[in-house]
Design a protein around this nucleic acid. Structure first.
Lengths: 262, 262
DNA sequence: CTCCACTGGGTACGTTGTACGCGGTTGTGG
DNA sequence: CCACAACCGCGTACAACGTACCCAGTGGAG
């Protein structure tokens, strides 16, 4: 089996048996790369830059990592480890999934570049495996694996989609050096032209509403998450009823005070 | 206002008033770039390659497009136009959203590279605007804009998340030149080691189950989508009841025949 | 007719990932 | 104990990238 035939990075041993002791380590390199990516984006984490960060020569990194893509894989798995899923399943699936959702979102917001890595087939690094065990374990007692996978796809889809939006908004703000409201002011001519054209009534409605957001980003996320969890609840057998899920009030019309519909 | 201060690509006029007639056009360049990206991935659509495709010199493209990033924006908006949302809202929101979901998924599968572009703040190209109008119009009569945005975030999150997985799986298959089952055979040593270790019971369950998938990818998608739509239905006032949504049967335990839990 | 804003495109620069090979270091078989 | 092969860090080199700059031609406005 030649070097190129390792199925993934986790199969390739970090350290060979013989030879001089390595000065650095995969973990150290991964850490440095994450530090740079956090501060300046993933594209700033070039091999030369990472090497400089730990005081090594550029090509030295290739003694530890076969390629930059593989390094990104290492970084991604390290991030999965930041999500605290200890003690799951706790018996209260709603609490568990809320904790997971908050943890995943917080992790993405700490490391926004994660949104730009397109996962290849799941590489099943150690942290990802642990996460799978704990997360899928939450509903494992209640539904089949197929159904569990489907529900988690929905949950993850909601979380990632929402956070992607938060991230790209924040990135644009940083990129342009303008605050969010300044950015809106800058793009005013374009938006205004669209609004004034009268061809986009719903877009207009969104723009008008967005200027007076009722909820903070956190609250928006929490609110939508509760909706998703309600949906999951509906898919579970009654035996799974979560101890403290008595927050199902009659919601119906809860519009703001007298906003007319166009 | 200097060139750099255009707020986005849509504000910048394609053609100036005077001078010789351009040989090419933004639309033509965009089309060529999409063709290349479809066949070989977005990273293959380099400026030189696109120029060669239409028979131009590399630098000529910059007469039409300020930068490659802006070109990607043009490509993305063109893709949004492929989703057929004509005639929405039709009055049957469930049918409308199903059609949209199928259309979005099909478009992503036709142009998998879309998953690798990280949107900056929504650029509101013409096709995206139209899509917003039609899609958000579907539920506009039933819920507030805030709620509508939340529900659509959930729907889009589910669709994009699911399709991302399909895409990365397909890409890995193409990259390695192996079929899906060959790929699994190749990675058998790694997976087998994990299974045999006994530390990952749920991962093991997934692997065992995945060898006998009950549903095709299409059916999986459809199934999860129905679940999401059920969730949306729960958030709507009763007046919004969709004509043909009587497919809520009693589902409970539907496990495979007697697989013990570890 | 004259001007000059525009055209297509060639050359060149800085930056990227990484193949290759060097001289030095070290665990191990004889 | 010692020679050797396997490993180390890393300097050099190359191809490909996005794009700044410049130039000679072209055609509508005054």
């Amino acid at each position: 089996m030649t070097d190129a035939e390792y199925v993934n990075i986790w199969m390739r041993p970090e350290r060979p048996a013989r030879g001089p002791k390595p000065t650095y380590s995969r973990a150290q390199i991964t850490e440095a790369a994450i530090r740079i990516a956090d501060a300046e984006g993933l594209e700033a984490a070039t091999m030369r830059r990472i090497a400089a960060e730990i005081g090594a020569g550029a090509m030295s990194l290739y003694r530890y990592v076969p390629s930059r893509d593989n390094l990104v894989e290492l970084m991604t798995d390290r991030l999965q480890g930041e999500i605290d899923v200890a003690g799951m399943p706790s018996g209260d699936w709603r609490t568990d999934l809320t904790r997971y959702a908050d943890g995943l979102r917080a992790m993405w917001l700490r490391h926004p570049w994660i949104a730009t890595v397109q996962r290849s087939l799941p590489s099943f690094g150690p942290n990802q495996l642990l996460l799978i065990e704990r997360l899928m374990g939450v509903l494992d007692a209640f539904v089949s694996i197929d159904e569990n996978l489907g529900l988690m796809a929905m949950l993850n889809g909601y979380i990632e989609g929402t956070v992607r939006e938060e991230i790209s908004s924040a990135k644009e703000v940083r990129r342009s050096g303008l605050s969010e409201s300044e950015w809106m002011a800058r793009s005013y001519p374009y938006v205004d032209r669209l609004v004034k054209s009268g061809e986009y009534p719903i877009f207009t409605k969104i723009v008008m509403e967005a200027r007076h957001p009722h909820l903070s980003r956190d609250d928006q996320f929490r609110y939508g998450l509760q909706r998703v969890l309600d949906c999951i609840a509906a898919a579970l057998p009654s035996t799974a009823e979560s101890p403290m899920s008595a927050h199902r009030e009659g919601r119906k019309e809860q519009d703001g005070p007298g906003r007319a519909r166009s």
